[in-house]
Simulated assay, not measured.
Amino acid sequence: MKLILTQQVSGIGEPGDVVEVKDGYGRNYLVPRGFAIKWTRGAEKQIESIKKARSAREIATVEHAKEVAGQLQALKVTLRTRTGSNGRLFGAVTASDIADAVKNAGGPDLDKRRIEIGNPIKTVGSHRASVRLHPDVNATIDVNVVEA
């Protein structure tokens, strides 16, 4: 199945890329979640606008990405949330929650779609999240989840 990516998908490609994936993966995962659109000649004309929007909000150079990574690693991010007994959270911490906490801690404004959480954060304590700043630069954020 031939698709045009609208968002970055790890291991597949960047927004605006035309990729060939298995039919089930494209039909059941990428298209319903809005990560891709079906390739047609008309949709191919949209590729340029997707790439322009991507370049406007993307960190352009590796040096700038490394600078932002340094800021993120030096940042103390604390996230206050409601908890139940035994330090368990009501729900889980999302990438959007982490992006807001980084901004509140005085860090750079991050796109929530670039934040990857390895295991779901469902307990109080210290956790790690990864941020894809540039194809060559990843940063890790230490998130301290505390009871509100």
Score class of each variant (00 low, 15 high):
M1W: 13
K2S: 08
K2A: 09
K2V: 07
L5Q: 04
Q8M: 15
V9N: 03
V9R: 05
S10P: 12
S10F: 12
G11H: 01
G11T: 00
G11A: 04
I12P: 00
I12T: 05
I12M: 06
G13Q: 00
P15H: 04
G16T: 06
G16P: 06
E20Q: 14
E20N: 14
V21H: 06
V21K: 08
K22T: 09
D23V: 14
G24Y: 09
G24W: 07
Y25S: 08
R27V: 13
R27D: 11
Y29G: 09
L30E: 03
V31S: 07
V31T: 05
P32G: 04
R33H: 04
R33S: 02
G34Q: 00
F35A: 01
A36G: 01
T40R: 05
T40V: 00
R41W: 07
G42N: 12
A43N: 07
E44N: 11
K45C: 14
K45G: 12
K45H: 14
K51P: 03
A53M: 10
R54D: 09
S55P: 08
S55N: 09
S55C: 08
S55H: 10
A56M: 09
R57E: 12
A65T: 02
V68P: 01
V68S: 05
A69I: 02
G70P: 03
L72C: 02
A74E: 06
A74S: 08
L75T: 02
L79A: 09
R80W: 13
T81E: 12
T81Y: 13
R82M: 11
T83A: 14
G84F: 03
S85H: 15
N86K: 12
G87E: 07
G87F: 07
R88N: 11
L89N: 04
L89Y: 04
L89G: 01
L89K: 08
G91I: 06
T94V: 07
A99W: 01
D100A: 15
D100Q: 15
D100F: 15
A101C: 10
V102D: 02
V102C: 06
K103N: 14
N104G: 13
N104I: 11
A105M: 10
G106I: 12
G106D: 11
G106A: 13
P108G: 10
D109Q: 15
D109R: 15
D109S: 14
D111G: 07
K112H: 09
R113F: 04
R114P: 05
I115L: 04
I117R: 00
I117W: 03
I117E: 03
I117K: 01
P120A: 03
V124D: 03
R128W: 15
V131G: 02
R132P: 12
P135T: 02
D136I: 11
N138F: 08
N138A: 08
A139T: 02
A139F: 00
A139R: 01
T140I: 15
D142F: 15
V143R: 02
E147G: 11
E147D: 13
E147K: 13
E147T: 11
E147C: 12
A148W: 15
A148I: 15
